[in-house]
């Protein structure tokens, strides 16, 4: 099986240093288990391709293009000429707009299906591949998909192999002159301002009025910090269960019954109907 891994120019979330986004490094590890993998980067700098070699690719192509131009066209053109069975991409970029739209646009341009959020892949019988897709809270969806296919990688996939300086040195990068590209399509860049962290909405599956008020006003944790001393174990148990229900991890007493949360539904634990 032949795999192309799409590489993007990311930034480290804390330091802001150029890095290969983690999910793309995970994609490289996943690709290594499937067959012969090559990398593909479109952008002004070669560093994502270089980093990808360090994470395990032997070869990557770097298509130079001006900053800010749309990578979808050159990516799709190159993929068409290489005709890999699987195109792997990260789930979202990292450090840019982070819309996660590029893989979809590439898939649309290629006219091949896209499967998001893979955590594991195995080649199945001819022309088919088995993909485990991550859903919230450890639920998986196992898909059998016809190739060629574009697949994005979920952060819960096996961690990337560490960058190895020696590998980065050994691998090769093919530099390909820029294809003439359209500048990023669509609207002018949106207005930007410094990010302000806002309190998260609480999962309100019941609880007291005060709790839900806090959910709205942002005094986050359920009931604030509360320490209970000198309680009987029985009262303590009641407090614990009430808390667990308030934060929505334990089904209410009247619902499915202890420990029998309806497993297959993603939201059953958050929100049980009475």
């Amino acid at each position: 099986m032949r795999i192309a891994v799409l590489l993007s120019a990311g930034r480290h979330p804390v330091s802001g240093k150029p890095t290969l986004p983690r999910t793309e490094a995970q994609a490289i590890r996943m690709a290594a288990g499937l067959g012969a993998a090559t990398g593909l980067h479109v952008g002004p700098d070669a560093f994502p391709a270089e980093a990808a070699l360090g994470h395990g690719l032997d070869y990557a192509a770097h298509i130079a293009c001006a900053a800010g131009s749309d990578p979808v066209g050159p990516l799709a053109a190159r993929i068409v000429s290489d005709a890999p069975d699987i195109v792997l991409a990260g789930r979202r970029g990292q450090g840019g707009d982070e819309t996660g739209l590029v893989p979809y646009a590439v898939a649309a341009r290629l006219g091949v299906p896209i499967v998001p959020d893979a955590v594991a892949m195995r080649p199945a019988t001819d022309g088919l591949v088995e993909i485990d897709q991550a859903l919230p809270k450890g639920v998986l969806r196992r898909l059998v998909v016809r190739t060629p296919v574009v697949v994005t990688v979920h952060p819960a996939a096996p961690p990337p192999l560490p960058f190895a300086f020696g590998k980065a040195r050994r691998g090769s990068i093919e530099r390909i002159a820029a294809a003439p590209t359209d500048l990023a399509a669509g609207a002018p860049p949106p207005e930007e301002r410094p990010y302000r962290k806002r309190p998260k909405m609480m999962r309100a599956a019941g609880g007291s009025a005060a709790d839900r008020l806090k959910a709205v006003t942002g005094e986050a944790t359920a009931g604030g910090a509360k320490v209970l001393d000198h309680q009987t174990p029985e009262d303590a148990a009641k407090e614990v269960l009430a808390f667990l229900r308030r934060v929505g991890v334990l089904a209410p007493a009247s619902a499915a019954g202890p420990g029998r949360r309806p497993a297959a539904s993603e939201d059953a634990s958050r929100h049980a109907t009475s």
Partner: peptide, 29 residues
């Protein structure tokens, strides 16, 4: 902790089981 309970875990654990069991009986499931 958001909820801290100063108690012996050895006693709280059976109490939790007991309480869940009681609820189960009461809701009749």
């Amino acid at each position: 902790a958001g909820l801290g309970i100063i108690q012996d875990a050895q006693l709280v654990m059976p109490a939790i089981l007991e309480e869940l069991e009681r609820e189960r009986r009461e809701t009749g499931t």
